[in-house]
Design a protein around this nucleic acid. Structure first.
Length: 345
DNA sequence: GGCCGACCTGTGAG
DNA sequence: ACTCACAGGTCGG
C-alpha cells in the first residue's frame, strides 16, 4: 500500500537523484520504482506527476517475522523503530531536502550560467540527498579509480558482511550499512581483500580505526558543524580520502553544499565549457583542482555543489543507455552500459 | 610545490 | 569464449 507525499517532478526526479552517482544502494525494482535502504529501514519509492509514492519496511513493522526479532534484540532496545507515518514522511523529506525549493535554485543558476540552463532543461528535479556520513564516507573510499557498477557491488558486500539485518522484503534480505566499529574490527582488511576490494580494503579498515580513535560518530557529527574548509582538511587525514573524496563527503552528508568534487567528468566539462586555459592539462593537479572549485563557487554561490551535481548528472547520463532487464523471480537488475563518448579535444 | 607511475580487480565492450 | 582497457583517485617517490 503506497503512502503519498505531494511533490512535482520538477522538484524531484527519482531516476536522476537516486541513480546519478551520489549514492550506490538504490536498485530498480520495477518500472518507475526503486528500492533501497536509509534511516534503518527499507524503502520502495515511486512517483507520478504530483506525488512521491513510498512504502517502508522497518524491523518493528515485521514483528511477526521470526527471523528479525533476534537482530533487533542484539542491538539493544530499538525504540526508534516505532515510527508513525508522520515521522516516516518527515524522514523522507529530510533525505531529499524537500524544504529547499528546487525551482528557485534552478532559476538562479540558469541566470548565472547559460550552459547550466541548457543542461537543466533535460535534467530537472536533481537533488542532493542528505546521506548518512558513515555510508557516504566508506562508499566514496570505494569510488577511487573505480566504476559505478563495481562500487555498487562493493557497498552491497560491506552491508551483507558487516551490516545489521533490517528486514526481508520479498525474497531479499536487506542490511543496514555497517557501523564504524564493525569495520574497525580485527580481520576486516583481509576479509575485504578476499572479497575483491583490492587496495581499498586497507583504506577502509584503517580509516575506520582512525575514526574510532578520534571519537567515532561524534567526530563525524562535529565535522558537520565545522566550516567547510576545516571539515575537508580533517577528512583528508584519513587514508584513502584525498581532495575529491573529501569533497564528496562534505557535499553529500556533511551539509557543506559549497563543496565541489572535481573528478574526471567535471574536469572535462570545466576545461571544455568554462575554463579553456585548462585544456593543456591532461590530469587534475592540486592547483587546478582548487581553481575549478573556486570558479564554480564564484559562479553559483553558496549551493555551488548542488549546481555542480546537476552538471555531473547531465554528463554522466547524456551518453548512457539504460537497459532494464527483469528477472522472473521478482528481482530486477539494472544493466548500465557506459557508452560515454570519447571527446578528443 | 608539481609531476608520474603504481595500485586491485570486476565489468563489459570488442 | 576470451582478451584487455578502464573506472566519480590516492599515495609515495
Amino acid at each position: 500500500m503506497w503512502k503519498k507525499l505531494p511533490c512535482s517532478k520538477s522538484e524531484l526526479q527519482l531516476l536522476y537523484t537516486l541513480t546519478g552517482g551520489q549514492c550506490f544502494r538504490w536498485k530498480s525494482s520495477g518500472e518507475n520504482e526503486w528500492t533501497g535502504v536509509f534511516g534503518h529501514a527499507v524503502w520502495t519509492l515511486s512517483q507520478d506527476d504530483t506525488h512521491v509514492l513510498y512504502r517502508v519496511t522497518s524491523p518493528a513493522d515485521r514483528a511477526e517475522d521470526p527471523g528479525v526479532g533476534e537482530g533487533a534484540d542484539a542491538s539493544g532496545g530499538c525504540t526508534r523503530h516505532l515510527q508513525d507515518d508522520t515521522q516516516k514522511a518527515q524522514l523522507l523529506r529530510k533525505y531529499f531536502r524537500l524544504d529547499e525549493s528546487l525551482q528557485e535554485l534552478y532559476c538562479k543558476w540558469s541566470q548565472q550560467d547559460p550552459h547550466f540552463k541548457q543542461a537543466a532543461v533535460k535534467f530537472q528535479g536533481v537533488r542532493i540527498l542528505a546521506q548518512d556520513p558513515v555510508e557516504n564516507l566508506f562508499s566514496f573510499i570505494c569510488s577511487s579509480n573505480n566504476n559505478i557498477s563495481r562500487i555498487s557491488s562493493m557497498v552491497e558486500k560491506l552491508c551483507v558482511l558487516y551490516g545489521e539485518k533490517i528486514a526481508t522484503v520479498g525474497d531479499t534480505v536487506y542490511h543496514a550499512f555497517p557501523v564504524v566499529s564493525a569495520l574497525a574490527s580485527t580481520g576486516v582488511e583481509k576479509a575485504l581483500r578476499n572479497a575483491g576490494f583490492g587496495y581499498r580494503a586497507k583504506f577502509i579498515h584503517q580509516s575506520a580505526c582512525k575514526i574510532e580513535e578520534m571519537g567515532g560518530d561524534a567526530w563525524l557529527g562535529k565535522l558537520q558543524e565545522l566550516p567547510y574548509v576545516e571539515a575537508k582538511a580533517e577528512l583528508m587525514k584519513l587514508p584513502g580520502i584525498g581532495a575529491k573524496v573529501a569533497d564528496c563527503i562534505c557535499l553529500m552528508s556533511l551539509n557543506h553544499l559549497e563543496s565541489i568534487p572535481v573528478d574526471t567528468h567535471i574536469f572535462q566539462v570545466a576545461s571544455q565549457r568554462y575554463m579553456p586555459h585548462l585544456k593543456k592539462y591532461k590530469s587534475v593537479t592540486a592547483k587546478v583542482y582548487d581553481e575549478i572549485g573556486d570558479y564554480f563557487r564564484d559562479l553559483y554561490g553558496v549551493y555551488a555543489g548542488w549546481a555542480h551535481t546537476i552538471l555531473f548528472c547531465a554528463d554522466l547520463k547524456m551518453f548512457q543507455q539504460d537497459t532494464l532487464s527483469t528477472k522472473s523471480a521478482g528481482s530486477v537488475v539494472i544493466n548500465d552500459k557506459n557508452k560515454r563518448r570519447k571527446t578528443a579535444a
